[in-house]
Structure formats: C-alpha cells, structure tokens
Computed example of a mutant assay.
Amino acid sequence: MSFQYENLAQLDLWTSFFKVTPLELPAERQMRPRRISGFIRAKAQPAPETAVPAAPVVVADAGAEVTAESGGKKAAPPVEREWVTAQWGLVPAWVKSASDARLRSLKLIEARNESVSTTQAFRDAWLAGQRCIIPIQAFYEDDLRAGGKPIPTRIARVDGEPMGVAGVWSRWQDPETGAELMSYAMLTINANSHALMRRYQHPGSEKRMPAILGEGTYDAWLTARQEKAREFMRAYPANWMLANPVENKKDKKPKGLFD
C-alpha cells in the first residue's frame, strides 16, 4: 500500500465536495506518515435537555401529517460533518509514552479491513465507531513490473475529482504533558483481482488499495451500525481511475551541451 498521498489544493474543494471547511489548508500537500493533515467525522450531537413526547406527530416533506401509528417515516436529516486536524499514523489511546507513540504511528498509517476489528492497535477505534473520511486528491504506488528501480505512479480519478477514503481515528493524551493528539489510519482492501491496482507493489505479495468510498455513501459510512460498516468496503472501479508515472526532474535535464 501507498506511503504517500496528495492533499486537496484548494479550500473550496473541501467545501463543495465534502461539505466541510478547514480553517486553513493543511501545510502538507504531499502527505507522508506522521505528518499533519486531518479527517472528516460526524459531528457529535448534544443530548436533548427534555424528553421527547411519546407517539409524536411527524410532518412529512409533502406537508401531510403522518402519525406514529400510521407507520409513516420521514427521511433522516443529512449528517453534520466536521473537519478534525490530525496526524496520519494512528496512536492508540492506551499508548503510555510520547516516544512509543512516535514509533507506533509510523507503522499504523493503514488498517486492513479484514482485521481492523481484531488487531490490537485499531480494535478500540473500530468498536467505538470512530470511523472517518480522509479526503485525498491522489495516492502513490511503486510500479515494479519492469524490474530495477521502482517507478513512482500517481493514481487519481479520471475526472480529476477528489476521493474520500474510509478510515478510523483515535484520540491520545500524553500522560506526562496532558497534550492531546488526534490521529487516523486509512482502511485498505484486497486488490489482487483489481484490474489496475494488481499491477503495483511487490510481485508475489498480496495487493492492497485504499478503501475509496462512493460519494453517496459518506453519511451512511460515518453513522452505520458496526455490523453494517464493512458493507462499504468495496473496490473502486478501475475504469474510474487514472495512473500516471511521476516525472523525475533528472529525466528532464537537457542533453548535449553539458554531457
């Protein structure tokens, strides 16, 4: 799986595509482990101050009254989302020291969908429903098919739109200083049979790819019951993705005069 992804370049992309607005652009455009960017989660709703009356009358969208006894239902309101500044590289809440947090986070940038609920580092976040969306413009993989030096490859959507990757998040507090750190990890899925992603990573190894969510599933992913959450882990269609080798500046050096 990739150890680098690309942040969105303009604040209005967060607003228009993900319905959140960070106070400012993340400082890092090219994200690597333990750098600071952030994630999107469902905003916690305050507990009601008074009890809700039994069998209330619900006014449907069309204006007709529908009572509880009639079995009528009203569509759930959109989920209110919020942006949380955080580190890429999850730090479990039970970590005891800052030095341990630094070491662990480098290895915890991704969580396997198949084992996220049982792996010690991610289990608590998953069981607590601490799911998130990680906005990315592209991610990078090494093309090793030709042998020799790996060729970095940028993978993005064909139409140039951003992608929302499923993730889990954690809140850690330094026991010595009391400082709080928010962190996150991407969820990945098996890509052995994916028409595009099976080309990358080491030959003979299991292929993995980010769990890219469909735009229409964002709210459902953030609020789904735990037993339903894995239903969102599906391979993003290969024909919606575009892979381009990253140009090396050395390759552009003019030849002739200074050879």
Rank of each mutant, 00 (worst) to 15 (best):
residue 85 T to R: 11
residue 240 W to N: 14
residue 217 T to W: 06
residue 86 A to R: 05
residue 37 S to K: 03
residue 155 I to L: 09
residue 68 A to T: 15
residue 158 V to N: 03
residue 27 A to T: 14
residue 216 G to N: 10
residue 70 S to W: 07
residue 58 V to R: 13
residue 225 R to G: 14
residue 255 K to G: 00
residue 121 A to I: 02
residue 157 R to S: 10
residue 225 R to V: 10
residue 227 E to T: 10
residue 102 R to T: 12
residue 134 I to C: 05
residue 24 E to N: 03
residue 88 W to A: 02
residue 136 I to V: 15
residue 37 S to L: 08
residue 244 N to C: 08
residue 245 P to W: 09
residue 23 L to P: 05
residue 248 N to T: 04
residue 251 D to I: 06
residue 63 G to C: 03
residue 258 F to S: 08
residue 8 L to Y: 09
residue 194 H to S: 06
residue 92 P to H: 11
residue 173 Q to C: 02
residue 100 D to H: 11
residue 154 R to I: 01
residue 120 Q to I: 09
residue 238 A to T: 06
residue 70 S to Q: 15
residue 140 Y to R: 11
residue 110 E to D: 14
residue 170 S to P: 07
residue 105 S to C: 10
residue 176 E to W: 01
residue 234 R to H: 05
residue 180 E to R: 01
residue 218 Y to P: 00
residue 95 V to L: 06
residue 171 R to H: 13
residue 235 A to E: 14
residue 175 P to E: 07
residue 194 H to G: 03
residue 106 L to Q: 12
residue 224 A to M: 02
residue 135 P to W: 07
residue 71 G to I: 07
residue 226 Q to I: 10
residue 111 A to Y: 05
residue 223 T to G: 09
residue 34 R to G: 00
residue 177 T to F: 01
residue 43 K to L: 09
residue 249 K to F: 13
residue 84 V to T: 11
residue 140 Y to H: 11
residue 228 K to E: 11
residue 259 D to M: 03
residue 41 R to D: 01
residue 194 H to C: 07
residue 217 T to M: 13
residue 3 F to P: 04
residue 96 K to G: 05
residue 206 E to M: 11
residue 255 K to Y: 00
residue 152 P to A: 14
residue 83 W to N: 05
residue 179 A to Y: 00
residue 29 R to Q: 11
residue 60 A to H: 14
residue 209 M to V: 02
residue 127 L to T: 10
residue 60 A to E: 12
residue 259 D to A: 11
residue 36 I to D: 06
residue 257 L to F: 14
residue 229 A to C: 08
residue 241 M to G: 06
residue 102 R to N: 12
residue 69 E to W: 13
residue 40 I to V: 13
residue 227 E to L: 05
residue 119 T to Q: 10
residue 175 P to D: 02
residue 28 E to H: 15
residue 19 K to F: 00
